[in-house]
Design a protein around this nucleic acid. Structure first.
Length: 258
DNA sequence: ATGACGCACTTGGTGCGA
């Protein structure tokens, strides 16, 4: 089974790009972030025509997450880890694989704005709530392997940053964010891509501005955390990021045993 | 320090992203 996470930066604006990627790669599971639309505006039909089941959790203009899968999924949960905050950033479901189930948690972590902003304070609060929520969710689904994936808006280490000196102490790279990332790992998860590519400096996000992609100036902030199963392979698809009218994030895929 | 690029939206400048 393969599971892709992709911040698409508006599903309506990106629909053609996403569909051509689906037709080429035929993913089993697609976890999307930054839908930037309400549930009724998500273009479900082209995915259903291709044999996919779609569960969305959207809101107007901002945020929004979805699970799209050709393996059936059940037991969908939305609105976590801070219920009622009006920000659609979390959706989870159980994938019914060929020989086993997998619980998938799809996240769009708070960006955080500037260091001295309310947004950054909320990001840390949100991450604290996430650690507690994942711990409880893992206990509640203890019989099933779990993947927590999405746009974490955290570069876990300097190896995930094109210019660590420039980014030192900046939002996405602060010690406080990285400590919360570590607390997630300490719940019993491994960073799939890093486990398979121990010393590789490769990025999943490249700024639209300043020709970031062409300069290979980016960050690795889109991740799959695995518990109870091993990653067989992990791929960051830079070809998708290189396309005209692409998202600023590349799709990231992890392969696990069916 | 600023802007650069792209997106949504009470569509024209503003907020937001990372």
């Amino acid at each position: 089974m393969n599971i892709t996470t992709w911040n698409v930066n508006s599903i309506r604006r990106r629909l053609e790009r996403v569909l051509e990627w689906v037709d080429t790669h035929e993913p089993d599971v697609l976890c999307l972030q930054e839908l930037k639309c309400q549930d009724g505006e998500f273009p479900i039909e082209p995915f259903v025509e291709r044999g996919y089941q779609v569960s969305t959790y959207g809101q107007k203009a901002y945020n929004g997450v979805a699970i799209v899968s050709r393996v059936p999924h059940i037991d969908v949960v939305r609105d976590f880890p801070i219920p009622g905050d009006g920000q659609a950033r979390g959706i989870a479901a159980t994938l019914l694989g060929r020989t086993r189930k997998v619980r998938v948690v799809n996240l769009y972590v708070v960006n955080g704005g500037e260091l001295d902003s309310d947004k950054y304070a909320y990001k840390l609060q949100w991450l604290d709530a996430l650690v507690d929520w994942v711990a409880a969710h893992k206990s509640a689904h203890a019989d099933v392997p779990m993947v927590v994936c999405g746009d974490f808006n955290i570069a876990p280490a300097d190896l995930d940053v094109y210019d660590p000196k420039r980014w030192a102490g900046q939002v996405l790279c602060t010690d406080a964010e990285r400590a919360r990332w570590q607390r997630l790992l300490d719940l019993g998860f491994v960073d799939s891509w890093r486990q398979l590519h121990a010393n590789e400096r490769t990025f999943s996000w490249f700024d639209y501005r300043g020709g970031g992609f062409d300069r290979n100036e980016g960050l690795r902030i889109d991740h799959h955390l695995l518990s109870g199963m091993q990653p067989l392979e992990a791929v960051i698809d830079h070809d998708a990021r290189a396309r005209a009218e692409s998202s600023d994030h590349a799709p990231v895929t992890v392969f696990v045993a069916d």
